[in-house]
Nucleic acid binder design. Structure first.
Lengths: 251, 251
DNA sequence: ACTTGACCCTCACGCGGCGTGAGGCCGCAC
DNA sequence: GTGCGGCCTCACGCCGCGTGAGGGTCAAGT
C-alpha cells in the first residue's frame, strides 16, 4: 500500500534539496527516517510530508532549530515565531538597502572620477569613499554645498592645475620648516594665507577665521595630516599654527 | 611628533570595533600593527588610517578578503569589486523581500484562522501554510476563487459541521472497504457521489468529471492521501476509483 | 620591592547550514 | 564473484567574529 520507502536520493530529487541537507536534518534531529538493514535511511511518506513542512518554513527563513521547535512542540506559538522572524527579516532588509544606497553613491562618485586624479579633492586624499562621511559631517553647511558645486565642474586639466598648486604650497611649507621659519612669523603667516586663498578660490569661500577652524583638522584628522605631512614632517602642525596666527591679524 | 602608538583598546574605542575584531584583522593579515616589547600591538596612525578605509568597505558589505585585495593589490579593480558586491546585495534584497511577502501572507492566514479548526479546509490538513502552494497551482482557477469566497464566511460552528460530515463520509468509506465493497459498484459510486456533493456544497461547484480530476489528487498528493487514509488504509485509492466509475455514469 | 588590578596576549571552540571530499560498506546486475 | 553505483560515517571548511580560559605585562600605589 503506502509502504514504499524512499532512499535519500529519491527524496532529494523529489524535494529539490541535496542529500547532504537530508543528512544534516537527520543529524540535528529535524527529520530522522527509519533505517533499513544496511543502515540505509528509509523515508516514509510521513517523512516526506514532514519535509514539505520543513521546506515551507525554511523558505520563510526560519532557523532549523526554530522549525524543529515549531513542529515538535505543540505548545510552541507558531504565530509568535513567525512574527519574530518578520522582525529579523525587516532588519535585514533595512540593512541591505542601506548598504545598497551607500554602495551606489560610492560607485557614482568613483565612476565620475576614475579619469581624474583621485587624490585631488579636499587636499588630497581620495574623496570618493570618504565623501559619505563628509556628507554626514558637513552636508548641511553652505561651504560644503558650494565646494561641491564648484568641484563638480572642474575638468581634468583644472584638477591638475589645482593639485600642482596645492603641492607647490606644501613644498614651500616643508622648506620653511627645514629653514627653521616660525609658523607665527610673517613668512609663516604668508604660507597660511596662500593655503587659505587656494581653498577660497577653488573650493569654498573661506575667511581667515574660518580657515583657522579648517586648519585644526589638518592636525586632528589623520587623513588630512598624512596628506600634508607627505611634504615633510610637521607640515600639518606648521600650517595649523600659522593659520591661527594669521587669523589673529584678521580685522 | 606623530609617534604616539595606540593600544588595541584605544583603537577599539576610537573606531567603534571590538578588540576581538582587531585581533581578527591581524590574524587574517588585513591590519597588522607592529608589536611592542611585551608583544602588545601598537597601532600607528597609518594603521588607524587603514582601519578607517577597512570600515568604509566593510560598511558596504564587502568580505574581508576582498577588502584586503582591494587595498593591497593596486591592480585590483575597485569599481568592479563594488559592482559585484552590488549584484550580491541586490540578490539578497530580492530574497529577503520575497521571504517577507510569503511570511506576511502566512501570518495573515494564520491570524485569521487560529480560532478555527486549523485542520479544516480542503479535506483536513492545515491550509494556512500550504495555501501558498495552492495559490500558485490553482490560484487562477474559478473553483479556487469560489472556494475561497465561500470558506471565508464560515463560522466556527459551520466548520465543525462540515468537518463532521467529511469524517462521516470517510468512515463510511473505511467500512465499505472492510466489507469488501468494490469501488466500481453502485455502493462505491454512491460514496464517491456523497464526497463530491460535500465538496460541491461547501467548497466550489464540482461536477462528476471535475471530481474525477480532484480525486486523482487523493492518491497522488501524499497530504490528501494521508488525510483520507487515517479513516482506513486504501480509502484514498477507493475514492479515486469510485470517482472515476461515477464520472463514467455522467450524462 | 612587592602587590594589585587593569590591560594585554594566545589558543580554541562555537555559531548556521550545509559543501565537499575521503575512505569504506551494501545491493543489484551480470 | 565481481563490478559499479549508491549508501554510510567522519571531519574539515566557510565568514566574522563572540566568548571564555589560562597566563603574561604594565603602571600605580604601598
Amino acid at each position: 500500500m503506502s509502504k514504499k520507502a524512499l532512499t535519500v536520493a529519491d527524496v532529494a530529487k523529489l524535494s529539490g534539496v541535496t542529500i547532504r541537507a537530508l543528512h544534516h536534518y537527520d543529524e540535528i534531529g529535524l527529520l530522522s527516517p527509519t533505517r533499513g538493514s544496511g543502515g540505509y535511511r528509509r523515508y516514509s511518506e510521513a517523512d516526506v510530508l514532514r519535509l514539505q513542512q520543513i521546506l515551507i518554513y525554511r523558505a520563510l527563513g526560519l532557523p532549523l532549530q526554530r522549525i524543529k521547535a515549531v513542529m515538535d512542540d505543540p505548545d510552541f506559538d507558531v504565530v509568535a515565531a513567525l512574527q519574530e522572524q518578520r522582525t529579523q527579516l525587516e532588519a535585514r532588509a533595512a540593512e541591505t538597502s542601506r548598504m545598497l544606497e551607500s554602495l551606489d553613491r560610492a560607485l557614482t562618485r568613483l565612476r565620475g572620477n576614475t579619469a581624474l586624479d583621485l587624490s585631488a579633492l579636499f587636499d588630497g586624499f581620495d574623496p570618493a569613499l570618504y565623501e559619505e562621511e563628509a556628507e554626514q559631517r558637513w552636508g548641511s553647511t553652505a561651504a560644503y554645498a558650494e565646494s561641491k558645486r564648484r568641484t563638480s565642474q572642474y575638468t581634468r586639466e583644472t584638477w591638475a592645475r589645482i593639485n600642482a598648486e596645492a603641492d607647490a604650497i606644501g613644498e614651500r611649507v616643508a622648506k620653511a620648516i627645514e629653514a627653521g621659519v616660525s609658523p607665527t612669523s610673517e613668512a609663516g603667516k604668508a604660507l597660511a594665507e596662500a593655503k587659505r586663498l587656494h581653498v577660497d578660490r577653488y573650493y569654498y569661500p573661506c575667511g581667515r577665521r574660518m580657515f583657522q577652524e579648517v586648519a585644526s583638522l589638518y592636525t586632528d584628522d589623520p587623513r588630512f595630516r598624512q596628506n600634508l605631512d607627505r611634504f615633510g614632517a610637521g607640515a600639518a602642525a606648521f600650517l595649523r599654527r600659522a593659520a591661527a596666527a594669521n587669523a589673529r591679524d584678521s580685522p
